[in-house]
Amino acid sequence: MSSGILDFFKRIFVNRQNPIINDYRVNRLRPPGAVDEVRFMALCIRCNRCMEVCPYNSIRRAGFSATIGTPYVIAETKACYLCMACCRLCPTGALDRNLKEPPKVKMGKAKIEPSICYSHLFLEHDVIPTESLQKIGALCNTCYNVCPLQDRAIALKDNLYPVILDGCVGCGICVERCPTRPGRAINVIPAGMGRVDEAGFYFQKAKSNYDISQSRETSPQKPLSGEGLLEQKYRIDSGGQEPKFDFPYEKPRIKGDWD
């Protein structure tokens, strides 16, 4: 009993897993290269240099909370385009200076909500979600098309609907462009929100979502190139190869007569 209380206080005051420091929110991310949240809050001196150099105006200053003044990327309004301009000038090392390759960024991880996603709705539940889609007769897959790390972070399962892979860095471009309203069908869960050792109080809340996103992951695919890519594209438009359709009905063996 007493050890439980001790652990509780240790977690809050020594490991600093409290809602003041671990203030996570879905689709609100730290800039690329940010160290883990507890260290970030200690090291970030709120000088806003990352904000000033961001050519896309992606990085915003946090409003009223314990994190006031620290940088955030609000994925819904403007996502991070992974130009990596902010990392190299952080004066205190709250953003990793040596990080230059976008695939190594760990801002978070995207998660698709199948109950809203147009592609999932259409393919799994056979529902055409909106009239506009009915007219154009196309699948959405916007998230796949805008992803800067195509086939590493996101892939089209069966070439039909998007799934998130391990390579997702959480830049949030898919969230920015996702057409569903009011809620987005794809959301980025910030790094640390789903981990027990970092998330603190938010863990219980985030755990179920995180488990779902974990279970949806498949093994990382290599980005297709050359013949593989060609083959995939042929399969999509079925120009080159015969697509394999599962025909659920038995073919009649004997041709029947007219009578």
Binding site: R39, A42, L43, I45, R49, E52, P91
Partner: peptide
Amino acid sequence: ITGTFYAINFGGLGVADPSVILQAIFAAG
């Protein structure tokens, strides 16, 4: 020139407020 008076950079010369740095050292340990 980039930055604010928490930390500023004049064409490569990084300057930061010493009190801010002191706090960052203590906070991060």
